[in-house]
Design a protein around this nucleic acid. Structure first.
Lengths: 188, 188
DNA sequence: AACATATGAATGAACG
DNA sequence: CGTTCATTCATATGTT
């Protein structure tokens, strides 16, 4: 269709084949932040660990640590959590009327036997379990024993964690050459 | 991105033959929603009636009604309007800029560039308002394709319709055998 | 098959 | 925070 001109800064290569990182560190690609898979992985993990609304301080630290994987600013982290949280809710909240697909022949594939009942606002709740070892590291973290729903209720604990836990954990992805990131909530 | 993977369902058939256009009640299609022509027709009609950003409630109802024609979820309706609106706007903006290129240098109506003072935590919120120009352009260049342009200006009315208007509108396609759908905005 | 386009879906950014 | 906007990604469909 129409092309990207639309503005001020055209992306050099919009071939999201970024499995490495795209604008990391050097690209002055402008435009919006395009998180690397590593960054997303870490953020997701933090989220899963219970972090929902990081403080300014935490954001700063997270941002700093993630900057290793590529260009990133504090606001990106801020927005990421805002959006992630909002959408998490958007999906599951409004636990009402979406049971209206009576003609659903598609249920053949619906193995939604997951803990999530198929009733959110509009969206499906997708599983993101494919995050492997990085997660493993934090899996032992106390808060992680809850499901997202429950964590939601106990969300406020997340921000308190920093003062209690003394769980010495560090994420260190073996397939990459990078400095270890201490992502204990308590360290943020 | 834990949600970016939309490939949970590999399409066994890259055989273009999606046979026609809908998977209404037989296809065990996974992947993305493929609206039936009837669904599109109704959605388009609603759009032309002035609906731009249906509320959650409206979305639910529309979805329910459209489910008669085939598989559909609320989120599909949501996205449909989101996309349709965005693309209409995008197209118009492009045209406007194109028609008005030489003047479009950025300051024609810029009187109030500074309301940006709201610093959100770390970053400045930059104001980029370009609608003014577009609107103005439209006034100068009444490129009226059908009536979409007019609709846009009156968009805000549309969302009020649901509670005030007595827009007597009912779609009842004669060429089909189906229950009449009351698509008056006021009924949504 | 390669290329082009229409459009569903996702998400970063930002508004009220 | 809930919503909305802008841009991009992904895929179905159309064309050469």
């Amino acid at each position: 269709m129409e092309e990207g001109l639309s503005g001020f800064c055209i992306k050099g290569s919009h071939v999201r084949g970024n499995n490495g990182n795209n604008n990391g560190g050097s690209g002055t690609k402008c435009g919006r932040w395009n998180p690397t898979t590593e960054q997303v992985k870490v953020l997701t993990e933090l989220f899963r660990s219970g972090l929902r609304t990081p403080s300014t301080d935490q954001i700063q630290k997270i941002s700093t640590q993630l900057s290793f994987y590529g260009k990133i600013e504090s606001k990106n982290v801020f927005y990421w959590f805002q959006n992630h949280k909002a959408r998490e809710r958007q999906k599951r909240r409004k636990v009402s009327i979406d049971e209206n697909d009576f003609i659903s022949r598609d249920n053949i594939f619906n193995n939604n036997n997951n803990k999530i009942s198929s009733s959110k606002r509009f969206f499906e709740v997708k599983e993101y379990q494919s995050d492997q070892r990085v997660i493993e590291t934090l899996q032992l973290f106390p808060l992680n024993s809850f499901d997202e729903n429950e964590q939601e209720k106990l969300r406020f604990h997340a921000n308190e964690c920093r003062e209690t836990s003394s769980f010495p954990y560090t994420i260190n992805n073996p397939e990459m050459d990078h400095p270890p990131l201490d992502l204990r909530l308590s360290s943020l």
